[in-house]
Amino acid sequence: MTVSDEVRQALDEQMTVEITTIGRRSGQPRRMETWRYRANGRYWLTGSPGTRDWYANLLAHPAFTLHLGDRDLPAHGRVVTDPEERARVLGEIVPGLDWASSLEAWIEGSPLVEIELS
């Protein structure tokens, strides 16, 4: 799907987003809030190092819903595990976060998922 200018603008304006994933064990929808970033011309879900339920859910069930204002957009989460890609993407995101721990800590321990709108 080509991302419309309207959706792109909403994504650019909304750093905190809500997503609905499918629970990895329950199979039930789980709506939660997380952070959206833009790097390398694409959109990503990530957060400070640590475990996240939304990430575990996307590992099990990559399809999710991205909620932007009054829009519910079907999406797919491409989990990024390749160390070089993680370093490139997080290397663009983390330096702009004055509260973030070291880039190395993020590369080693942060969830990283590309948002692919479908």
Rank of each mutant, 00 (worst) to 15 (best):
T2S: 12
V7A: 00
Q9V: 04
Q9E: 15
A10N: 00
A10E: 11
A10I: 04
A10S: 12
D12I: 00
D12R: 13
E13F: 00
T16N: 09
V17Q: 09
V17E: 06
I19L: 08
T20V: 15
T20L: 05
I22F: 01
G23W: 06
R25T: 13
R25A: 09
R25H: 11
S26E: 04
S26T: 15
Q28Y: 13
R31W: 07
E33M: 09
T34K: 04
T34Y: 04
R36K: 10
Y37N: 05
R38F: 01
N40K: 14
R42A: 14
R42D: 14
Y43T: 03
W44R: 10
G47D: 08
S48V: 02
P49M: 00
P49E: 11
T51I: 02
R52M: 04
D53C: 01
W54N: 07
Y55L: 01
N57Q: 09
N57T: 08
L59M: 10
L59V: 03
H61E: 12
H61V: 06
P62Y: 13
P62M: 12
A63I: 09
L66R: 10
H67V: 12
H67K: 11
H67Q: 11
G69V: 08
L73E: 12
P74T: 15
P74M: 14
H76G: 01
G77P: 07
G77D: 10
R78H: 15
V80W: 05
T81C: 07
E85I: 13
V89C: 11
E92R: 08
I93F: 07
D98K: 13
D98I: 04
D98M: 05
D98Y: 06
A100V: 05
S101D: 15
S101I: 12
L103S: 03
E104D: 15
A105N: 11
I107N: 03
I107K: 08
I107E: 05
